[in-house]
Design a protein around this nucleic acid. Structure first.
Lengths: 220, 220
DNA sequence: AATTTTTTTTAGATTTATCTAAATTTAAAA
DNA sequence: TTTTAAATTTAGATAAATCTAAAAAAAATT
């Protein structure tokens, strides 16, 4: 089908586009893939030949419909495997990213469909990310960044946008895991530190930590 | 660690050595890997440099202790994933080989140990092959080829040595699956066809089919 | 608008795993 | 034991993905 490497490029382009909503730049891709801009250019030409991306020299890239579909399938696989690793094999949410990064490239459609069924069609992965369905559709997420949440409004943590192990371990130590209820009691004017009430416990977190927490003010 | 390709070479060398108990020949490896003898020679040099095989030009190869350990780990992964696919995801025993062939290369030790635990430390895979433990030890198998079984001796099917989907589907249609009891009632002198009694049902099978069935006369 | 900086691309090499075709070695047959 | 056949290896090429260094284009700054 498509090589391991091609799949990774598509996935990264998808993620970067999600964040920026602008054509994705060569350097950004190189950064994410720990490779050099020159290597990225080579691969972009190849992906463009295969009509998986829209590529104009010096103008950055976007995914074609076909490219987007492939990227979403890989994201689906990644997230389903993460659910498996946490729920069935009892890994911590900070341990599963790298393993899923490998498992996501095992490409055999029925495997993923059966895994999905086995896991009882989960809606989100252990970090709160939405799992697209088999046709590539995402549910619409009603979510807010914690930094955008107004003071004294009840909310529930539904996800994180940073998956590194140190970050996730830190959150866990603070008791800030998915499903927890919280409320911003105040924001320190000097450095913006957030004073939270998390299920009765008082916690202070820096803006850097808060930046990657997603909350919902509905469905509590 | 080791490349996908290197792992496949080691695995194939292990399997071929099991059958022949003699240094494995270049052509045999090429045949199993659908590649050319020249390519195999190239890779053998590389594996020899890494001290994973004992290689003397024109004399075939054997695995070193280190090479054997790696091969067995891959076989362990393969067989555990097969158990997962059949028992948890409800695939048929004829469907799992190729999927496991990919999953076996996801190399992260704790993943396999936890999978093993999740599956409740299975002893054999869905084809009856023994699963080595985490230190690479195989249980001693008390098994006989069906063609070596004497007439009128009760036996139980414990494995097959051929994993192709058409073969396994054929066995399934005949009702010859793992755990089934059988007895050779007679052997046709003309072409060696075996007349079996399998749990009361009378079945005739060719020597070609019988050749890949393993039975045990103990533990019934 | 001209200059500097940043970003991206090209040109040319390198590495890994493969191949074909020819040469070599070993094994089998006459 | 010579000859023939089979198996294996070498030599030289190719394709995928990467790299460095230099050139080119775009963006930012003066």
């Amino acid at each position: 089908m498509h090589s391991f490497t091609e799949e990774n490029y598509l996935k990264v382009i998808f993620h970067l586009y999600q964040v920026q909503e602008m054509p994705v730049q060569t350097n950004a891709i190189a950064g994410k893939l720990n490779t050099r801009a020159a290597s990225v250019t080579d691969m972009l030409k190849k992906l463009a030949d295969k009509k998986l991306i829209n590529y104009i020299r010096y103008q950055g890239v976007t995914l074609t419909e076909q490219g987007k579909l492939i990227a979403i399938q890989i994201i689906r696989r990644h997230r389903l495997w993460e659910v498996f690793l946490v729920e069935k094999l009892n890994f911590g949410w900070d341990e599963v990213h790298d393993i899923a990064e490998e498992l996501e490239h095992v490409g055999y459609q029925p495997l993923i469909e059966r895994l999905d069924k086995f896991l009882n069609y989960p809606k989100r992965d252990p970090h709160g990310d939405l799992i697209p369905d088999s046709s590539g559709e995402f549910e619409i997420a009603v979510q807010t960044g914690l930094l955008e949440l107004a003071e004294n409004i009840n909310a529930v943590i539904i996800g994180v946008t940073e998956h590194s192990s140190p970050y996730l371990k830190h959150l866990e130590k603070l008791g800030l895991t998915i499903g927890e209820s919280l409320l911003i009691e105040g924001i320190t004017s000097y450095d913006g530190t957030l004073e939270l009430d998390c299920s009765g416990k008082k916690i202070s977190i820096s803006r850097k930590v808060a930046q990657h927490i997603l909350v919902s003010t509905k469905n509590q």
